[in-house]
Design a protein around this nucleic acid. Structure first.
Length: 1217
RNA sequence: GCUGAGGUGGUGGAAUUGGUAUACACGGAGGACUUAAAAUCCUCUGCCUCACGGAUUAAGGGUUCAAGUCCCUUCCUCAGCACCA
């Protein structure tokens, strides 16, 4: 008890904490040592703060304390710990402040950083301040710009016209994530709550979707908590489905249907199509009389020839006749039906009465009659009244033989023609449109091959030579194949004003500069003659490749791939298809997301130095599938490209449920669907246009809130590629223009589709049920909300019937591929990452725009492109940043005339924060963003702490940047972060979110003044799990202050003479060892709240011990040190230590001493605890059992023990009868 | 609706992963010291019952010698996504 003198009752935190903070800073106690191989490294990172105010928020304290405790623990455990801190200082608040005050954001930012840094230091965090930097430092953003340049050079950063949320008040565009829906449905900016509106602007975008697959699969190699992974997966939103091409029925055809008077429809109200499709659809039992022109007739014939339709010319309506009467008369006459039992139909004559008048205008009629090989059925459809009650007249079925036997002349005609139809193949529709397509080549032979490969007939193909072009005039040597194909296709368009295709095959050597690639004429240079033998082509090309490799002396692990490039240009869009196969020398590299198929492996045999290759048939199969897909994509354009009026003649839908395609009976497109108005028929244009306008006026919120489905008919039909069903095309706002193809098939197996169809009475059908049995009265069931959306067994699906959904999806996709009407496709919900901000306070883009509109990258030696100081921070009126108004954006030559401009936009916050963790490994480097050695040593970040608000944005963005840099060979790990923990939320004492208006904000400064950093740290640790939402309670803080004082006062009990006092004090030593073991484990799992509870318990124990052996005391304060570093540092130095306790060795424990020598057993009888007893720890089980029986004697009386079990050191369980 | 995490005293929350449920605190009650208050210290404190005892981890069922923990059903809370075909 040598130390009992003059110890104050409570810990003087004010002077002691300051003293040690200064000590740590001057002694660089927390310095992380680069490349220290004697210790294992740990990189602990917490999201660096945005210095928005002049002092630290309690939220920061809540978020930073646990990582600090963890860092300190690891440091004491002997790790080389990197725990850095910096500033994410670009961004809007500083700029907003500048607008109000005119003060340069640079100054505000510096002041805020100073203030917050002081606060952070007052908390005693073990940060290596040598590595501090701010994203606003030119030395830092030099490398942000450099990385962006790399994105640009790799084609991952491009400029795009983007419809964006524009905020007038802030004078900037905002990302979708920065806009939210207010309660009254208005879109507001997250910052400042100002209204926003849509505006189209040219923006830099990063093509993040190209990394979607990598970002998704990479998650598997991280230790993120499941909820974070789930959120990222949702955000990426991968779906695997099928695109389906639906042929549009030529518009003339529909026009005539609409005009035909025999159907009780009303074009103005958009119901006519319903009845018509219903009849067409039910044509296996319907008899239809219809009017049309020859052109239309031939279309119908072509379209339905496989269904054995026959068309008969019709006559007019006689005076005094109703149209039905005329129809029946004519039918009887022309088909010679007078002798048939047709009487049953007469009952419906009356029902036709009220649309009789319309028939009088008809002059030209055809009768449409379905004939199948074994019988002919006819029905007359009638509509009873406006309530759409329908009734069908009945006609007895007559066999074909019967008709033949009766020798009706008309019928003979039918049969003759029918047989002809059945033997004639499909007639090419394109012939009717006299299509011309330009193929971009001088080689006539190629045109023939195209025709052959793409199964094109009836298309007039024009070669470049016909247009007086030579390829050499158009393309540049050294371009990539794809590039050249595009250039050519576009050039041909300009010459011919016709859709144009360019095809090239080439070879691309990875790692070889673009301008040293073997040029676009590889195929010809390889001596490939025009042939369709693909295998031969590739073999020849492989030979050629090898010769190139040898000629250029390329060796090592070099990868090359063949390109077979198709590029098609229609004056508006490029349609690219790249078929790539890689050949790999010496080892195989895979590109999971690039669709590169190794066609053959090439081996170099060291002995003779020769190359060998082998073609694997499996890989060839893969290639052929891809080749077919490519072919289909092109041929679908060529074959279905445009209708006579120059508009697209297909609608492409995307679905993940292609198993429901057999019952798809309509197609819905988004209001944003491109070319929608042009597609719509004249009659429906107005209503479609109106609908589009209505949708635009609605906020997205309204579009969603209004659960009632709405839509309008476009007046057009498409045909189901599987069933040839005629399907109306509708517009509806629940289809999104920005996802998939902007068009969706409609069927009864989707809630939304069914809802829409029921509302507008669109024909519905089903083809899947649980057991493969048809659901009777399914329309009634649908109306009752019983929509069958699950997987099941198919029926009513032709060759696919009886398959289950999984099988059907596969088989139908195969079929679509085979018939050239669709292919599998993977879609991602994730969009391009819009990277421009119309702001001043951000990183300038490293580009110059020359006067003729070219973009030039600023060379590395001119980086950083420094942000100039301004005086006026008001954005310019056109939505551009204040930089647009300054002369900085002008680049002048020596005479002072403007030769180029800088970009007025700057980068968003996400730029600097996407890679800052890399810079911490080497913050002073001015040669590279960080040295390879340091990156290799420190990466990945072992544990990344941060806020849940960054789970999908920052975390995904920085993973994207990292993966990009990894692919560039600039960082050594595929993932930046190993573990990740999201911090919870600290609520005010009233249990609600802290806010100034509520007056429930806790100021860390106040608490530091009243209880000190150590008590505050312990309380933060104790308040609850790191990721929980917890409520601030002053009472809890007080208890922690008490704990600090109690630990402080332990000094008076320490015995400096007793050490290793195990013999006299075994109980205490056991408790101590258990304590160390427990806290060690808890800190490992970062259960800080429980660790503090253990510290409290143990403190309470040794407070009651008259003398505390020195070794126990030392170990104890070492364990407490991560929580209360100042206190323990002081106590440690009082013991005479000269080095920091933060660098002391974490105490060990003896597992033997964690076991009590006397244990207490609980005794259960039939599952109930009835007694307990104490017994020596090491006695035999038999004795334990005996003691147990003794303790529960009265419960065992007259009973027999049927079962007993001993859980060591815990309990004895007995089962009696 | 979908996805994820949960539901344990008046409150924040423990429970060695299937082994005595409610550790550690807050709050509450009583007491000591004090003229008094604050601070400090001590005792008690989940529920029903005077008690013996009993029920109890959202509710119900199951597996097990044994369930807060595993399985099924239902309900509820929080977070994210939200007409993504």
């Amino acid at each position: 008890m040598s130390n009992a003198k003059n110890i104050p009752l409570s810990f003087d935190f004010k002077t002691v904490e300051k003293k040690w903070q200064d000590y740590w800073l001057t002694n660089h106690t927390y310095e992380a040592k680069d490349g220290d191989v004697t210790r294992e490294k740990k990189y602990i990172l917490v999201e660096f703060p945005f210095p928005s105010g002049a002092s630290l928020h309690v939220g920061h304290v809540f978020r930073y304390t646990a990582p600090d405790i963890y860092s300190r623990f690891l440091r004491q455990k002997g790790y080389n710990v990197l725990f850095p801190m910096g500033w994410d200082a670009f961004g809007l608040p500083a700029e907003e402040y500048a607008r109000k005050t005119g003060q340069n954001p640079r100054i505000t930012t510096e002041q805020n950083i100073d203030g917050i840094k002081q606060n952070i230091q007052k908390m005693g965090y073990s940060i290596d301040w040598n590595r501090e930097f701010s994203t606003t430092d030119p030395e830092y953003y030099k490398w942000t710009q450099w990385i962006f340049k790399k994105f640009y050079e790799q084609g991952l950063a491009t400029q795009k016209d983007v419809e964006l949320w524009y905020c007038k008040n802030l004078g900037t565009v905002l990302a979708n994530e920065e806009v939210y829906d207010s309660l009254n449905g208005e879109k507001l900016s997250e910052r400042g709550d100002h209204p926003v509106e849509k505006k189209k602007m040219k923006q830099w975008v990063l093509k993040m979707p190209e990394y979607a697959e990598k970002l998704l699969t990479g998650l598997e190699n991280t230790h993120f908590p499941e909820h974070i992974k789930a959120m990222q997966r949702t955000w990426i939103g991968k779906s695997e489905g099928v695109t389906v091409n639906w042929d549009l029925v030529p518009r003339d055809y529909i026009k005539m249907v609409n005009n035909y008077p025999a159907f009780p429809y009303n074009t103005e109200f958009g119901v006519g199509e319903k009845d018509f499709t219903k009849i067409i659809r039910e044509r296996s039992t319907a008899f239809i009389r219809i009017k049309g022109t020859d052109k239309y007739l031939s279309y119908i014939q072509n379209r339905y020839n496989d269904k054995n339709w026959v068309f008969l010319p019709g006559g007019g309506v006689d005076i005094g006749e109703t149209s039905l009467q005329a129809a029946i008369r004519e039918t009887k006459e022309e088909l010679g039906l007078s002798g048939l039992e047709y009487v049953a139909d007469l009952g419906s004559i009356n029902a036709f009465g009220h649309w009789t008048g319309q028939a009088q205008h008809s002059t030209e009629h055809y009768f449409l009659l379905e004939v199948s090989m074994d019988n002919i059925k006819m029905r007359v459809k009638a509509e009873v009244d406006d309530e759409k009650d329908e009734m069908y007249g009945h006609v007895r079925a007559v066999t074909l033989e019967q008709y033949k036997a009766n020798n009706w002349p008309q019928l003979n005609y039918i049969i003759e023609n029918l047989e002809e139809y059945l033997t004639t193949g499909k007639i090419d529709r394109l012939e009717q449109h006299n299509r011309e397509i330009v193929i971009g080549t001088t080689n006539k032979g190629k045109i023939d091959r195209w025709k052959h490969q793409l199964n094109i007939t009836g298309v007039k193909l024009v070669s470049a030579g016909d247009l007086g072009l030579t390829v050499g005039e158009i393309v540049e040597n050294g371009n990539s194949e794809l590039e050249n194909a595009r250039i050519k296709a576009k050039a041909f368009w300009q010459m011919a004003q016709k859709p144009s295709i360019s095809g090239d095959s080439g070879i691309y050597l990875e790692g070889v500069p673009v301008n040293e690639q073997p040029s676009q004429n590889t195929k010809r240079a390889a001596g490939v003659v025009e042939t369709d033998d693909e295998a031969m082509i590739w073999q020849k090309m492989v030979d050629f490749y090898i010769s190139r490799v040898e000629k250029y002396g390329i060796n090592g692990e070099l990868n090359a791939y063949f390109l077979d490039v198709f590029s098609l240009y229609d004056g508006f869009n490029f349609y690219d298809v790249e078929v790539k196969r890689s050949i790999i020398i010496t080892n195989q590299i895979t590109y999971p997301d690039r669709k590169v198929f190794p066609l053959c492996n090439i081996y170099k045999v060291p002995k003779n130095g020769k190359y060998y290759y082998d073609l694997s048939s499996e890989e060839m199969d893969d290639f052929l599938i891809e080749y077919k897909e490519a072919r289909n994509l092109l041929s679908s354009y060529l074959f279905d490209g445009e209708d006579a009026s120059g508009h697209s003649s297909i609608v492409q839908t995307y679905t993940t449920r292609v198993d429901t395609l057999p019952s798809a009976t309509f197609v819905v497109v988004a209001p944003e669907y491109s070319g929608l108005l042009e597609l719509s028929s004249d009659e429906y244009k107005l209503s479609v246009a109106t609908y589009i306008e209505q949708t635009k006026a609605k906020s997205e919120r309204e579009r969603q809130i209004n659960k009632e489905k709405t839509g309008v008919f476009t007046g057009r039909f498409v045909t189901n590629p599987l069933t040839n069903e005629l399907c109306p095309v509708w517009v509806t706002d629940f289809v999104l223009g920005s996802y998939g193809t902007g068009a969706v098939m409609g069927d009864a197996h989707d809630l939304r589709d069914a809802e829409l169809a029921l509302k507008y009475d669109i024909y519905l059908n089903e083809n899947i049920s649980k057991d493969g049995e048809k659901r009777e009265d399914f329309v009634e069931l649908l109306k009752a909300g019983e929509v069958f959306i699950e997987d099941g067994i198919l029926y009513n699906s032709g060759e696919f019937s009886a398959l289950n959904s999984d099988e059907a999806r596969e088989k139908i996709a195969e079929k679509l591929l085979e018939i050239g009407k669709g292919m599998t496709k993977t879609n991602y919900r994730m969009r391009d990452f819009v990277f421009s901000r119309q702001r001043y306070w951000g990183e300038p883009f490293p580009f110059e725009y020359t006067n003729n509109g070219e973009i030039k990258v600023i060379s590395d030696d001119k980086l950083p492109l420094v942000l100039p100081d301004l005086e006026d921070f008001e954005p310019s009126k056109d939505g551009r940043s204040p930089l647009a108004k300054s002369d900085w954006i002008n680049i002048r030559d020596e005479q002072g005339s403007i030769v180029a401009t800088h970009e007025a936009d700057t980068m968003p916050n996400w730029a600097g924060s996407s890679w800052y963790y890399l810079r911490f490994t080497d913050p002073k480097n001015d040669e590279e963003f960080a040295s390879e050695e340091n990156l290799k040593y420190w990466l990945p970040v072992d544990h990344y702490f941060g806020g849940s608000e960054h789970t999908t944005l920052h975390l995904l963005y920085s993973r994207f940047w990292h993966k990009f840099l990894y692919d560039m060979g600039k960082v050594p790990t595929p993932e930046p972060y190993d573990y990740r923990t999201n911090g919870g939320i600290l609520l005010g004492p009233d249990g609600s979110k802290m806010s100034k208006s509520k007056g429930n904000v806790i100021q860390p400064d106040d608490k530091l003044d009243s209880v000190g950093a150590d008590a505050l740290r312990i309380y933060i640790a104790f308040i609850g799990p790191y990721d929980a939402t917890v409520i601030w309670q002053d009472g809890g803080l007080k208890a922690c202050k008490t704990l600090v004082d109690r630990i402080w006062n332990l000094q008076s009990r320490v015995s400096f003479t007793s050490k290793n006092d195990l013999a006299n004090n075994k109980k205490l030593y056991i408790a101590y060892n258990k304590f160390v073991k427990s806290v060690s484990n808890l800190l490992e799992e970062m259960k800080n709240n429980v660790a503090v509870a253990e510290i409290m318990t143990f403190t309470n124990l040794i407070r009651e011990t008259p003398t505390i052996p020195l070794d126990i005391y030392e170990g104890f304060i070492k364990v407490v040190a991560p929580f209360a570093p100042h206190l323990c540092e002081e106590l440690w130095s009082v013991l005479g230590n000269k080095t920091s306790i933060a660098l002391s060795k974490w105490p060990t424990f003896d597992p033997e001493l964690c076991i009590d020598n006397v244990v207490r057993y609980a005794v259960q009888v039939n599952g109930k605890v009835r007694a307990d007893f104490e017994i020596e720890a090491n006695v035999a089980d038999v004795q334990v059992l005996e003691a147990a029986k003794l303790s529960v004697e009265k419960y065992l009386e007259g009973k027999t023990i049927k079962f007993s079990k001993i859980i060591p050191r815990k309990l004895v369980t007995l089962v009696v009868n």
